[in-house]
Amino acid sequence: MSWSNGEPVVRVTNLHKYFGPLEVLKGINMEVDRGEVVVIFGRSGSGKSTLLRCINFLEDPTDGEVEVAGIRLDGGHRTRGKRELIRLLRTHAGMVFQQFNLFPHMTALQNVMEGPVTVKDMKADTVRPMAMELLGRVGLADKAEEYPIRLSGGQQQRVAIARALAMEPDVMLFDEPTSALDPELIGEVLNVMKALATEFHMTMMVVTHEMGFAREVANRMCFFHDGVILEEGTPDQIFNETRFPETKKFLDAVL
């Protein structure tokens, strides 16, 4: 927090989300500054994934306000104009899924190029060198021509990160990026994410149970419990000066 320049990239105000009668998010307020890495953790069902999905409107917030890179949107029903704004907002927020969700009919390179070419309407020849560079950065330059089915889970997730980065987003949203991976493949993905944070100062919101990663990389940690942010602080505060018994219990369970 101290080293960021205080310019919020993501601002969430009084965000509520209902699934039917079930209130999953109970008025979340949150700001993420440029270059900040926020780790969100908590039990499954506590609403942490839902928050990420509300930020880029994969779920429509029931009530409240979301602002990403200066684009401000209300919750509630979608209108025609809002739909266009949602698309614009999404180009500023890169998303990485638990299940990778690479396009299986495209090669790794085509996956990375897809966003800029289709959404930003850029020429393939312009995008290709940039996409190759991104693949190199995640350590997969030699896999550019491979289809996802021939890549390991860790490699697929790294391609997915490159795909999201190709849109040059202002913030990267990671929704449990390592939860579907075999244990020995988790490290390669976390290393890419670490480099993204420390070398490129990417603004990141990471839902994860990887507490080692959080301790090392996060500027701030948020503990989600029953749809609210119960506890918030630097990794040092969270790990060493835990205030709530719920947080303590959860940390004891995952550490």
Binding site: N56, L58, R87, L88, R90, T91, A93, G94, M95, F97, Q99, N101, L102, F103, E114, G115, T118, V119, R163, A164, M167
Partner: peptide, 19 residues
Amino acid sequence: GQAEAADALGMSYAQRMRR
């Protein structure tokens, strides 16, 4: 997940379907 990945990139309905 495929539709969500396309949405997350900012694709429109037509783009998502076609691509």
